[in-house]
Design a protein around this nucleic acid. Structure first.
Lengths: 255, 255
DNA sequence: GCGACTAGCCTGTATATACAGGGCGGAGAA
DNA sequence: TTCTCCGCCCTGTATATACAGGCTAGTCGC
């Protein structure tokens, strides 16, 4: 005879509680990268759930790149790295919040300017046309992680400069005003110039990832931006649809 | 009394079969964006699996952005998902030839080795399994432009090492032996170690673009490679389908 | 002392079952 | 005819169970 199964209200969502607990432990530093996470059976005991539920929580965290699992060994916290999806445009504030961290944006500059040849070309405007420009440093837990230099097409988003960038990122505002229908990413490794280095708090010889992004809404270029990331920590990922099941350590990094 | 449960060999992985079937139907156009996908119970009947297994397949496809589900209604193909071509894998020799330049490949190392933890993980083999390894420097007009360190799954391409890499790049050979069905790119800016620096002929503080690439053929990982590019010259591009008409100068060299 | 075997822990996959709750359409009441 | 309620289909979540198979440490025989 099967034992009576006590159903659980949908609101409980035990697997989410387990995920939140693990994410909180990571955020508070109780779990460090490389640390062993409770095994499924330990979670069963600790949370009073079935192993399938614990399994689901851990499996989803693995898919999200937070944990690394291997049969016979155990479950571990992934080496810390910040991922950006090359094939997708995401809001940096959301990414930071998802990691359980605090996002802040420091506006260094914001104003109007005349398009020089490069900018005019990139935004498909005429030379000397009025263009909006902003330079913003994004902070994760008060650590700088991205410098965003942006040029905006005033024909598409005329109210860009009156946005409060501390409560809404440029990206967020612009996608609301003009939904993205196409984009382009060009990635380079560069030696950052002194100003960028200062904003990111980098040493002289620290390599730096630079992403040049343009986004379209219909036929019009909405905006283009230069995004600078501190190199070593930052990873850009691109996967094809049928992609791999789980993230893997890059060869050359320690497991 | 619980009915006897027929255990299934791990190799079966029914949920993956279901996912592949759905992905194939989408690829062949049998399922269009917005179409309704078989419900869980229909899949149970069609594949002879339990509902939990069908549920897992659909849930994972939802996480991957392929499907959209809503309780009480059904499961549907997501309206649009960007096509795979965004970051294609190209043969470096072809790229060089297209520029009207001369390609040469210098084989630094080529041999068998035992998979360490990282390599085993990346190729989805067991620790200590035999793996083929090669280190090749690609030259454009006798200037080094890429260092390619590659690990190859011997189960997929056992004759890899007997290839003449000066007449056929590893990439070319491998795509011939096992057509690529999926890939993953992870891009970082790094300070190259002395050996890589030497091969690329770089100065000490020169930044460097490192691409970690894995390619699949069906369920098997064919190969993974670390590709090093001298940063400033090299651009990695990703475009969405509707992409821009023509390449544009990166706003760049000045702030 | 060394190697082979084994017990035990861990994840991976699969099944049968159960209840919660959203959404929709048809039957029956107003 | 219109409105309401109920039953049915669908997904969401949870449980108990079972077997497969990777990995390790410890034991036992030689």
């Amino acid at each position: 005879m099967t034992k009576a199964v006590k159903p659980v209200a949908r609101e409980a969502r035990h697997y989410i509680r387990i995920k939140e607990q693990i994410l909180a432990d990571i955020a508070e530093g109780k779990l460090q990268p490389g640390d062993r996470v409770s095994s499924e059976s330990e979670l069963v005991a600790a949370f009073g759930v079935s192993r399938m539920t614990a399994n689901r929580a851990l499996r989803e965290l693995m898919f999200e790149g937070i944990l690394k699992r291997s049969a016979g060994i155990g479950t571990f916290v992934s080496p810390k790295h910040l991922d950006v999806d090359l094939l997708q445009i995401r809001n940096i504030a959301d990414e930071i919040l998802e990691r359980g961290h605090k996002h802040k944006a420091a506006v260094v500059k914001a104003g109007l300017m005349k398009a020089d040849a490069n900018v005019a070309d990139a935004l498909e405007l005429t030379l000397g046309a009025g263009v909006m420009h902003s330079l913003i440093v994004h902070l994760e837990n008060d650590q700088p992680i991205q410098v965003e230099e942006r040029y905006v097409n005033p024909l598409v988003a005329p109210d860009y400069l009156s946005t409060d960038f501390s409560s809404m990122t440029p990206n967020e505002y612009l996608t609301k005003v003009a939904p993205i229908t196409a984009f382009e990413h060009v990635v380079q490794a560069v030696k950052p110039d002194p100003a960028i280095r200062k904003y990111l708090g980098l040493k002289n010889d620290h390599p730096c990832l630079r992403v040049f992004r343009r986004t379209w809404s219909g036929e019009a270029v909405v905006t283009c931006a230069l995004l600078y990331y501190p190199g070593a920590q930052y990873r850009l990922e691109a996967r094809s649809t049928k992609g791999p099941s789980k993230p893997v350590a890059i060869l050359g990094e320690k497991l």
